[in-house]
Nucleic acid binder design. Structure first.
Length: 774
DNA sequence: GGTGTGTAGGTTTTT
DNA sequence: CCTACACACC
């Protein structure tokens, strides 16, 4: 048990206290995963059976890594026997075993959010509702929230608060949509993500013998990232833990960032109420970051009101201050980041994989990617569209889904006419209508198309028969052959492979390669499978694919690449050098969040997470303008930049950070965001994009001095003339000549709408735009 | 009835 | 900028 020696006092106590309710409050970088790992190993070393342990992690990757580490202490076979994974994957597995009890096939399909939105959209339209009012994504969020709070469609419709909210937002039919949606899912033998938790709750509530079985089985419960659990997850845990109360939750309220997904920070704040005799351990020593980073993060997070008292500290070096960098455009921002990486990598002999670029929204990755490519820096981008969400992959998977679960209506709709085989929209509309009105699965309708009174031309009918026969042959094959053989057969028989191969465009080539990659992964799956359990079938391969994320797939540990990801995706990770980019109002904090205090606090926690990923050095960057939907918009530095105590910041790379509260301590406080720009974006001499060769990264970008110098020189109103009016001809450094169509807004928000001869219509804020009347 | 082209419209964050 | 839907043609 020498592993205990490597732990500090608090960590060790948390590890050794294996019985009874336990809460570990773990500050960022305080060795939380270590504690969890050793605690599980310790339970086994003390004679606990690995079969009796259930550990719920936030990602499957985290589970895999933890298992590996545990295996090194207690042996691989022990580690293998532990139930470990995300809530969704663990309970999907249980639901498959117990499916009939709640009326589902064991092969039930899991719908990802894309699938459920498609279904919702169809329902909304079939109800004669406007899908611009009832936006599928909005309705989906609403239903998701209901499910995560264990509200059935009936409960939803009877809930006065919800009814009132829906009335007020002029969407009174959401409850009804929810009801139909649920029926359709059931009919299709499908569950969405939230159902995996919801139905687990139903199962444990309605079948005491099942509850009892799993209570006995999971005698030791461990939940990682407890601050990000939602009500539905909370009730599952509470039910499973009720018998032995060997429940250990680990988390950090300061890192709760998933409330949009129903996560309830109260779960961790109230843990004491549920288990009064809980043993609480606080891990406060940070082993990850420098003093500067830890203190800067502390100074930020203390602005939040709602939190458990913690005092995170570190013995590590002082380190460097957090460096603030300013750019003129998002492309330049990318350039700065790429150049800095290039320099630091050379100066410090760092590897590419030591760097991470974190952003608030996936859309920001583009500018960063471009910049990385320009300097030939290898990078790996996580998140965004995952492999399995690509259209070509989803199409092929839809065939697989249909073969495994013919009830899956959505799969049929997706592929009945892909590749095009002459079964069009009109036919499908009629078939779907008939199927829904008579509550007959679509597949059954198709199989007996000649017996049902559906108005469809003979040509289409014949094609449907052909389709059905093809799918039936797949079903027969899938029962006998392995997943790879079946997959290969489907991909070629449907001519999907041929179609994609024929497309010789770059994108087409990519799609073809993706499908090949999917088939390769099926081959690997078959080869890796434990053949003693029987032939690894298609069903075994596809069932839980929707639960896989990007990160679960391609983690080539050895690949030396810069990491690009959202801050959300970076949770739990650490990097020597971290760039948090896009530190701008409306972006971070997101425009959505600046309204309410709770949302703002969550954004602040998100920023806290971002900073605390860094081990040695953290950089914060912002840009004064960025392209949104193809046109330039202007932005202000994030308010969060001013919430970090100045003594931990290095402002030499940033110009004045102005704010709505003018009297603060950044240098050059009065600097003219009010319209004294003497430079225009395109003439930014420091811009590196496209001009700098990898061999000569400039060490010269210092917007501050340049801007200040020019500001001091020109006290004029450098920007647009105040008498600008519609009809005037103007010249803009970037967009060329144009005609003013109108002026809008007042004061600092005054903007001109200008039709540029070459660049089209633009809205430019006068305080930024350098316009010359011609 | 199916297939191809224009133009609206859309960006948090994810299992 | 990119994707999804609506309209006009075959």
């Amino acid at each position: 048990m020498d592993y205990l020696d490597g732990l500090n006092q608090a960590q060790r106590e948390a590890v050794e206290h294996t019985e009874g309710p336990t809460m570990v409050l773990a500050g960022a970088g305080s060795g939380k995963t270590r504690v969890l790992t050793y605690r599980i190993a310790h339970i086994i070393n003390k004679g606990g059976s690995p079969f009796n342990i259930l550990a719920l992690t936030f990602t499957n990757k985290a589970a895999r890594e933890m298992k590996e580490r545990i295996g090194k202490i207690v042996g691989e076979s022990n580690a293998k026997s532990i139930w470990m994974g995300t809530f969704h994957s663990v309970f999907a597995r249980i639901l498959r075993t117990e499916a009939e009890k709640i009326g589902y096939p064991a092969n039930f399909t899991i719908y990802d959010s894309d699938d459920s939105k498609r279904l919702l959209k169809e329902i909304i339209k079939s109800q004669g509702l406007d899908d611009k009012v009832y936006k599928p994504s909005l309705v989906s969020n609403r239903i998701s929230a209901a499910k995560n709070n264990l509200l059935t469609p009936q409960a939803y419709q009877q809930n006065l608060t919800l009814a009132k909210e829906d009335q007020q937002s002029k969407k009174p039919m959401i409850g009804k949509i929810y009801e139909i949606y649920d029926k359709r899912l059931f009919k299709a033998g499908a569950m969405d993500f939230d159902d995996l938790l919801f139905k687990t709750n139903i199962l444990l509530r309605d079948f005491p013998e099942v509850l009892n079985k799993y209570q006995d089985k999971f005698r030791y419960l461990l939940v990682d990232e407890y601050q990000d659990t939602n009500f539905s997850q909370y009730i599952i845990i509470r039910a499973l833990a009720a018998k032995f109360e060997n429940i250990c939750v680990v988390g950090d309220d300061a890192q709760s960032i998933y409330s949009f997904r129903g996560a309830n920070i109260q779960n961790i704040l109230n843990f004491k109420n549920d288990y009064p005799d809980v043993a609480t351990f606080k891990l406060e020593q940070n082993y990850r970051s420098t003093k500067n980073i830890v203190k800067a993060a502390n100074s930020l997070i203390e602005k939040n009101k709602e939190q458990l008292k913690k005092d995170v500290w570190t013995d590590n070096d002082e380190g460097h201050r957090i460096k603030l960098m300013r750019a003129i455009t998002d492309n330049e921002e990318g350039g700065h980041v790429a150049n800095t990486i290039f320099q630091v990598k050379n100066n410090e002999q760092a590897h590419h994989k030591d760097f991470a670029i974190l952003y608030r929204t996936n859309a920001q990755s583009r500018a960063m990617e471009d910049a990385m490519r320009k300097l030939n820096l290898p990078y790996q981008i996580y998140g965004g569209l995952s492999f399995y969400q690509r259209k070509e992959i989803k199409d092929l998977l839809a065939y697989f889904r249909l073969v495994v679960n013919p009830q899956d209506d959505d799969a049929i709709k997706r592929i009945i006419n892909y590749p095009a085989r002459g079964i069009g929209k009109t036919s499908m509309d009629r078939l779907i209508l008939f199927s829904n009105e008579n509550d007959i699965p679509l597949w059954q309708v198709l199989c007996n198309i000649n017996q049902y009174p559906v108005q469809i031309g003979n040509a289409a009918k014949n094609k449907i028969v052909g389709f059905v026969e093809m799918v039936q042959s797949f079903i027969a094959i899938a029962e006998k052959k392995d997943a790879y053989e079946t997959g290969q057969l489907i991909a070629s028989t449907t001519t999907i492979l041929k179609e994609l191969y024929a497309d010789k465009s770059v994108e087409g080539l990519g799609r073809y390669e993706n499908v090949q990659e999917l088939l390769n992964s099926m081959k690997e799956f078959v080869e890796d499978a434990d053949q003693s359990q029987g032939i690894p079938k298609l069903a075994d391969y596809i069932l839980d694919i929707p639960l896989l994320t990007d990160q679960d797939e391609k983690d080539k540990e050895d690949s030396d690449k810069v990491t690009l990801m959202t801050i959300h995706a970076s949770k739990g990770l650490e990097f020597p050098y971290v760039f948090v980019v896009g530190m701008e109002e409306e972006l971070f904090p997101s425009q959505h969040a600046s309204q309410s205090q709770t949302e703002l606090e969550e954004e602040r926690r998100l920023f806290y997470v971002a900073i605390t990923r860094a081990e040695k050095q953290c950089y914060l960057t912002y840009s004064e303008s960025r392209y949104k939907w193809g046109n330039l918009t202007y932005s202000q530095p994030s308010r969060f930049l001013q919430e970090i105590d100045e003594q931990f910041l290095d402002l030499s790379g940033a110009a004045a950070v102005t704010s709505k509260t003018p009297n603060h301590r950044f240098p050059d406080p009065g600097s003219n965001w009010g319209g004294n720009q003497t430079r225009r974006p395109s003439s930014a001499g420091t811009s590196t994009t496209g001009t700098v060769k990898p061999t000569t990264p400039p060490s010269r970008f210092k917007p501050t001095s340049r801007l200040n110098a020019s500001n001091k020189g020109g006290s004029s109103t450098g920007g647009a003339p105040s008498n600008l009016a519609a009809g005037m001809r103007v010249e803009h450094g970037r967009f060329g000549n144009g005609t003013v169509l109108g002026i809008e807004g007042v004061g600092e928000n005054k903007k001109a709408i200008i039709e540029f001869d070459g660049a089209g219509k633009k809205q430019l804020l006068l305080r930024f735009a350098k316009l010359k009347v011609t």
